[in-house]
Amino acid sequence: MSKTKTHEVLQSPAFQKLVKNRWSISLTFTFLMLFVYIGFLMVVAYQKETLKMPIGDSLNLAIIVGLGIIIFSWLITGVYVYWANNYYDAAVKEIKKDL
């Protein structure tokens, strides 16, 4: 691959958009995950009583939230994989055609 060609691809709007989209999704998801986890720790630290609230006959808010975070972690990685497989990879394929 010649130097100019590399330069062209790197400067192309398609490539720049790819990188920008990738990091806006990644960083948004990262902050979401940090927010959920640290938020949970803060609720545990300052709002213990709220978490004791019963839900239904035998459950309480703490159990739902705790197990919910585990499921959330898995879902959010799933959403990322779905996005990357369908949108990111397609864009990469498109850009690679020009190489």
């Binding site: 999704i25 990644s26 998801f29 990262t30 995950m33 959010i76 990685t77 990322y80």
Partner: peptide, 14 residues
């Protein structure tokens, strides 16, 4: 235990 799990999504994103 949740602390040990939440690093994984970050490995994915970053």
């Amino acid at each position: 235990s949740i602390g040990f799990l939440v690093g994984w999504p970050l490995i994915m994103f970053l």
